[in-house]
């Protein structure tokens, strides 16, 4: 018996995909609230510019490149799934997973350096925002990677191919969040 998420389409959209859109809608409020708060503090506190000067723009730009590339592999996995080519979708899913892993590795080196310099989460409001926003985003990356790894083995056997699109939607959203985090935390100094 197939789950209702793949067999029901009362709204014109398969229930599984509709659920992912609702997740994304709620994530907009979560990240929007955080980033909105950061922006108003950034404008109200000119000293934030001086603190932001200590973030590593090269690392941030490289991670943006990594996430954009992983989004490409995620959409190529979706394309392969549409062509009912499970093994190919499997490869692209793991390429996307690798992108997430590289992102987290760079982020961990970056944080290690910043913390060793004394820029900890309790240092001031800027660094609190920095670690909360980047940390929440990194948690979403980890969550996406875990889901991707779990679904990939069914996908390889041409089962539940619709899940490739669902995890892809989530992954692209996480990419979009980073697209806004990057200029806020790394460029606006």
């Amino acid at each position: 018996m197939r789950p209702i998420a793949t067999t029901r389409s009362a709204t014109g959209i398969p229930t599984g995909r509709l659920a992912v859109w609702w997740v994304i809608a709620s994530e907009i409020v979560i990240f929007g609230g955080l980033l909105g708060s950061y922006i108003m503090h950034r404008i109200g506190h000119p000293e934030f510019g001086g603190y932001a000067a200590h973030t590593n723009t090269v690392a941030g730009a490289f991670n943006t490149f990594v996430l954009l590339t992983s989004s490409l592999s995620a959409v190529l996995a979706h394309k392969a799934a549409e062509a009912k080519d499970g093994p190919k979708a499997f490869k692209f899913l793991w390429l996307t997973f690798l992108g997430g892993l590289v992102f987290l590795t760079v982020k961990s080196f970056e944080w290690h350096h910043e913390i060793s310099e004394g820029f900890t989460i309790t240092r001031n409001a800027f660094w609190s925002f920095y670690y909360c926003a980047a940390g929440l985003h990194a948690c979403h990356i980890i969550g996406g990677m875990i889901i991707m790894a779990i679904i990939s083995f069914d996908v390889k056997q041409n089962k539940e191919l619709q899940r490739v699109e669902l995890i892809g939607l989530y992954w692209h959203f996480v990419d979009v969040v980073w697209i806004f985090l990057f200029p806020l935390l790394y460029i606006a100094k």
């Binding site: 959209i13 859109w21 809608a25 907009i28 929007g32 989004s71 490409l72 692209h172 979009v176 697209i179």
Partner: peptide, 29 residues
């Protein structure tokens, strides 16, 4: 963000009410 949403998330092909749902969330922000 527009390019990713349109071309990778295929929002341009999605039902219109999904676009309205997302716009509503941004408006709430």
């Amino acid at each position: 963000a527009y390019l990713v949403a349109k071309n990778f998330m295929h929002l341009n092909l999605e039902k219109r009410y999904i676009v309205y749902l997302l716009i509503t969330m941004v408006a709430l922000m």
